[in-house]
Design a binder for these strands. Structure first.
Length: 268
DNA sequence: ATGGCCGGTGGAACCGGA
């Protein structure tokens, strides 16, 4: 079973590129981020014609996530639960999960678009960074439950986290950035160390492996990228991992997203 | 050395992104 994650940066602008990629790569499941569309505005028909079921969690103008699946999608949940009564509920459309049912086994797939968090400069107040850290705390709570369920499960999407220096062409440029601050990286490690496998790092320790290149400064041409789109697998999913990769060639095409698809293959 | 983009909204600039 091939499962992919793709921050498309706007479904309206990206529909032709998305359809081309779905035809070529043919993932069984695709988790999309930044659809930037309300549910009613999502172009269902064109995607359904390629054999996909669709579940969206949209919002006007920004954010928005979706699950596309050639298999049936069951038990869909939108948004992360609040941590406690003081926690504002997860009002931005950044999380969707569901169970995709294969012939031999089911997989719980969670698609996420973690907040960017910039600007993150103290001593000024930094509400966006606080929101990012609070969101990561909600994510960690959900992750613990997911592990406890002992399901074949994964959490994939745009984490907006540069985990290690190896994951940036110029790590020194990111030291004050919300994607790379020590608190961000510590929250990432807490999450992974619960018992998840970073699927790309399971298959390569190479540098220069990125999933995002800025539209500015000729970043793509100079491979000035960062790896911020990740697949975290529960042990039961990691047991079945046979391959993982990044479709970086999409970044060089006409009117690309600034992210490219990341994918895994599970023996299911 | 510096600045260079893009999508969405709404119908001009501005916000948000990373």
């Amino acid at each position: 079973m091939k499962i992919a994650s793709f921050n498309i940066n706007g479904i309206k602008a990206r529909l032709p590129a998305l359809l081309d990629w779905l035809r070529e790569a043919g993932p069984d499941v695709a988790l999309l981020q930044e659809i930037k569309s309300v549910d009613e505005g999502f172009p269902r028909m064109e995607i359904e014609e390629l054999g996909y079921n669709i579940e969206t969690h949209g919002q006007k103008g920004f954010n928005g996530v979706a699950i596309l699946s050639k298999l049936a999608i069951e038990d869909v949940v939108r948004g992360l639960p609040p941590l406690d009564e003081n926690d504002d509920s997860d009002e931005q459309a950044r999380w969707i999960e569901g169970t995709v049912v294969g012939d031999n086994a089911a997989v719980r797939v969670c698609g996420l678009y973690l907040p960017n968090g910039n600007p993150a400069q103290p001593p000024e107040s930094r509400p966006k960074y606080d929101y990012k850290l609070a969101w990561m705390a909600r994510l960690e709570a959900r992750a613990r439950d997911l592990l406890a369920s002992e399901e074949i499960a994964l959490m994939a999407g745009d984490y907006n986290v540069i985990a290690e220096p190896l994951d940036a062409e110029n790590p020194e440029r990111w030291v004050t950035d919300a994607l790379y601050l020590p608190e961000t990286r510590a929250a990432w490690r807490r999450l992974v160390n619960l018992g998840f496998t970073d699927a790309i790092r399971e298959t390569t320790q190479a540098g220069g492996v990125y999933s995002f290149w800025d539209y500015q400064r000729g970043a793509w041409e100079r491979n000035d990228g960062i790896r911020i789109d990740h697949f975290l697998l529960t042990p039961q999913a990691a047991d079945r991992l046979t391959a993982a990769g990044i479709d970086s060639t999409l970044r060089g095409r006409e009117r690309p997203s600034d992210h490219v698809p990341v994918w895994i293959d599970l023996d299911i």
